[in-house]
Amino acid sequence: MALTVFFVIMTVAAYLLSRYLYFRYNNPLINIVLLSAAAIIAILVLAKIPYQAYVPAKDIMTFLLGPATVALAVPLYRNRHLLKQYGIAIFMGVGIGTLISMATVMFITRAGGLTREIIVSIIPKSSTIPIAVDVAQLAGGNSALAVAFVVATGTFGSVIGLTLLSWFKIYDPVARGLAMGTVSHGQGTAMALLEGEKQGSMAGVAMSLAGVFTSVLAPILIACFVD
């Protein structure tokens, strides 16, 4: 029990340090999730602590993801006027963005000659892990690969997403939040929320809608272009 408490404290400390560095230097390469995970892995490896010893602490923090996700309703409620103002644009934008994301990676992997299992597993990469795993498994993909692709997409998007939007001079908080939530799911939403409440609330909406669109559109794309 004491070791579990220590690991929870260690993880929170790694997060707080990474968050401080992110705001202190404002560098996209200082990604909070990536840096925190790297620090925890380094500590476990250097101290020769097996991952199984860390699992109880991981399970506690994973359980807290549920309440944290529900808590996204708070900034969304505060910015509910944006849903009324941009409702149709949000729905269409997230739908088109989700479709383009899946179609692009599907055609690239097909052109690269990858196996059907890999193609099917990577198509739902921009949705959350539970949705991506279910879509991949139902279509004959590999759940482990699906998880890996989702994590990689979220990490990559959270690292360069906001910077890329700034390069293209996209500064509107609604647009930035929707883009991050559509492409980079939970990790993108977390980074958007750090930038601002409007960005975070819109990213949360986009993440939810993207999951719905992925569940509906991914099987259609696979049936039409992969099978």
Score class of each variant (00 low, 15 high):
F6T: 08
K125Q: 10
L193T: 12
A175N: 00
T98R: 00
V135E: 13
T128W: 04
I40Q: 06
F63D: 07
V205Q: 08
T153I: 05
V8I: 11
I131C: 04
G141W: 04
G66M: 00
L46H: 07
L72S: 10
G157I: 10
M10T: 09
I9Q: 13
G211S: 09
I100K: 00
V33S: 11
I122M: 11
G93R: 07
L99N: 03
V133N: 00
L3P: 04
T153P: 04
R176S: 08
L194W: 01
I32L: 09
H81P: 03
A148R: 01
P56I: 09
Q137V: 13
N79T: 08
T153D: 08
P50A: 12
A210M: 06
A203V: 01
F63A: 11
G161S: 03
Y22H: 13
T104Q: 09
P219N: 02
L76G: 05
T155I: 12
R176M: 08
V45D: 04
V8A: 04
V183R: 00
S121M: 04
H81W: 14
G93P: 14
L209D: 06
A68W: 02
I90T: 06
A203M: 05
T128M: 12
P130E: 00
A38N: 03
I30N: 09
I100G: 05
I30C: 12
G211R: 00
G113L: 11
V159S: 15
L99P: 10
F213E: 03
L217C: 12
S158M: 06
V159R: 05
L164T: 13
I222P: 05
L164E: 01
E197Y: 07
V12F: 15
